[in-house]
Design a protein around this nucleic acid. Structure first.
Lengths: 74, 74
DNA sequence: TTTCGTAAACGCATATATGCGTTATTTATA
DNA sequence: TATAAATAACGCATATATGCGTTTACGAAA
């Protein structure tokens, strides 16, 4: 059970990821391929449905060619 | 199965957390209490044994009174 | 050595992220 | 409108993070 505050944090993270992905002009599928994770997972993360792990954050940052810290700048 | 590169990332995260905790002059138990997570979990994260989630990173940052991005500055 | 504080290292159950599909639904484009 | 592209929303199995407790190891101080 995720606490209310954390749910908001996870939602914000997803929104930020979505924005950064679009800024990079990538589709969810592109990002999924580049990060080598399932497309469905990218969707779930962006929608704030899952409390993703730091290793996934790492591969997403790599694929977006940005620093991990950028994904948390919101 | 965590990839080699990611294992290094997780290890680095743990080391950084440990350093920031000590800088805040907190024991693992203090941090666990403040972040409201099990003591055993703090240990596992610091040793790089687990690929922790962003919500745990969030509560750790809160407890340490630092920004989430600081935990990824390494 | 003995005691104490701290961290490591267990075991085990439960919740949930992930991985891999498939099927809607929405959005954009011809 | 029709078609395609992109995303959402499923289902389900597996891996693993978490939660909680206990035990062991280790260093420092008495």
């Amino acid at each position: 059970m995720i606490k209310t505050k954390n749910k908001k944090f996870i939602k914000s993270f997803g929104k930020n990821l979505s924005a950064l992905r679009k800024k990079a002009e990538l589709t969810q599928e592109d990002l999924a391929n580049d990060a080598d994770i399932p497309l469905s997972q990218v969707g779930r993360i962006e929608r704030g449905e899952v409390n993703t792990t730091i290793s996934t954050v790492y591969v997403l940052a790599k694929a977006l060619d940005i620093k991990v810290t950028e994904l948390f700048r919101f």
